[in-house]
Amino acid sequence: MQDTNQSKTSKGWAGLLFLRVIPTLLVAWMILYTLAMVVSVRKQTSHFRSEGVNDSDTVTWSLEEWQLLRDKSFLEARLSLAGNDSLGLTIDFPDSTVRLENKGVILKEIRFKEAEMSRFFSAFTPAHYASAFSRPFTITEIEGSIMKEPIQVKKAPRDSTEAAQNITSVDTTRVEFVEWHLKLDSTLVVSFVQSERSLGSLDWPTVKYRLRRHYHALLETNRALVHFRLPEYKPEVTIFIPAGEAKSFYRALPPNGQVALKF
């Protein structure tokens, strides 16, 4: 009889914990998380807008001037990129082009058909835009679902007989799902995803890459909230390009390369 009562009590406690306490905490956390993200977004936007810009000269630009200003900012960023020794990436959203450049020489250019962009990138007034985008951004993180250098280790054969048996062949049938991202100046994120949805299933490296990325994002945000700090908001653009091109760009870009953007 006592055992039954004890089991009923523990069942009651478990029920209270899993059906009342934890759900209440989860809902509270979701609300707090969303509120913190909203504040963070607004703070980040105003931070980007306030960098060396006087607010007063923002509304007297015509649409033509606006367009010219974007062109000028992009060219200035490209010129600065050309002065750098390493390879750089230029992304022109109005033109839907991605280019790989080395000292001003266009090594590769492709047009994309599909891109997704955070609303953040349309939050700029002309003067703010010119201030933020007339210089290239520096890559602070580059990570993807494929290896940057696909090195295979091979032991030297002991004799010519073993060498004849160990002829390495290239697997031409292997298809990898290509997805990668760049973090720019630790604040903006540019992602590239292969546009062929049917080519290659979501393989384990891609799942691992996505889990790793989401885990980091969650960890950073939750850690900030626990410490009563605002989470860092990182506006993102995603560009869909063919797998082969996505792979070429990923493998070509150096870890501390630069990227010029035009929106």
């Binding site: 979701m30 977004v41 007297t60 630009w61 015509s62 955070s118 700029f124 969650l218």
Partner: peptide
């Protein structure tokens, strides 16, 4: 929710920066 919905909801609060046609003066 934390990964997708909260960021998506927060983005709705990004202030629009583009000046409307009424606000724009003629090209100088």
């Amino acid at each position: 929710f934390l990964l997708v919905t909260a960021p998506a909801v927060s983005e709705l609060f990004v202030p629009r920066g583009l000046p409307s046609h009424k606000m724009v003066a003629d090209a100088h």
